[in-house]
């Protein structure tokens, strides 16, 4: 178990360091997030109260599509010199490779959210009046669920020639429960705080989804590497 986490942190550290050096993935994700925010802020009048209703959806549009940009790169960057084989022939559990990739992708998306969500609130002149710890929990749980399944499927699709097209096709049906739960919980916490009990139910659903899919992906990743 110790080796599982140790190797995972080494792999995540390598990915984070690579990103620090190349600045390819997070920059692309941030540019995409910025474009979405600016486009929507010009398309809708921020002074109109009804526009507040699109903010929860926008948060997750930014998260999902920028995350896909990162997920696609996650395993493709390991194919140039068969780098992934270097990890497979080392005494590293396949689950460690998966876990390391999940940690790195999760951090990339959190960085994008950390920049884009405050920017979204500022450009839409939105004053946060809800429950901040719960909002944070929704963002973290929703993102983790999406990334844990996304990383698994990115590994699976990386063996395909058209992996960039294949990933969203495989991903969206499987992650739709967590997207629906995350959008609903975010909507309640941002603009309909009276229904907080309902938001907690959505959060519980996200918790269960994350637990089930994360464990499944962790166990099954060994077979992904065999493809």
């Amino acid at each position: 178990m110790n080796n599982l986490f140790k190797a995972a942190f080494i792999i995540a550290g390598k990915d984070l360091y690579s990103e620090w050096k190349t600045k390819q993935v997070v920059t692309t994700m941030l540019i995409f997030a910025g474009l979405v925010i600016v486009t929507f802020s010009f398309a809708f009048d921020p002074s109109n109260n009804a526009v507040r209703a699109i903010i929860p959806g926008l948060i997750w549009v930014i998260t999902i599509f920028s995350a896909i940009l990162g997920l696609n790169r996650s395993f493709l960057s390991e194919t140039k010199n068969d780098n992934l084989y270097g990890m497979i022939v080392s005494p590293t559990d396949p689950s460690s490779i998966y876990l390391g990739k999940v940690i790195a992708n999760f951090i990339f998306v959190l960085i994008v959210q950390l920049v884009s969500i405050p920017a979204l609130f500022i450009l839409f002149d939105f004053r946060f009046m809800g429950n901040f710890p719960l909002f944070l929990a929704v963002v973290v749980l929703g993102t983790f669920g999406f990334i844990s399944v996304g990383t698994f499927l990115a590994g699976l699709s990386s063996n395909s020639r058209s992996s960039e097209m294949l990933l969203p096709i495989l991903l969206f049906p499987i992650v739709s429960p967590i997207i629906i739960a995350a959008v609903q919980a975010t909507r309640i916490l941002l603009i309909d705080i009276e229904q907080i009990a309902s938001a907690i139910s959505w959060i519980q659903l996200m918790g269960v989804y994350n637990l089930v899919f994360f464990v499944l992906c962790l166990v099954l990743f060994e077979y992904v590497l065999e493809v």
Binding site: S18, N81, D82, Y85, P91
Partner: peptide, 18 residues
């Protein structure tokens, strides 16, 4: 077993940007 093995393949397994 893998701790005992060193594998040199046709491809280098090295990361280009590192």
């Amino acid at each position: 077993v893998k701790r005992k093995i060193g594998f040199l393949a046709h491809n280098s397994f090295l990361y280009d940007h590192l």
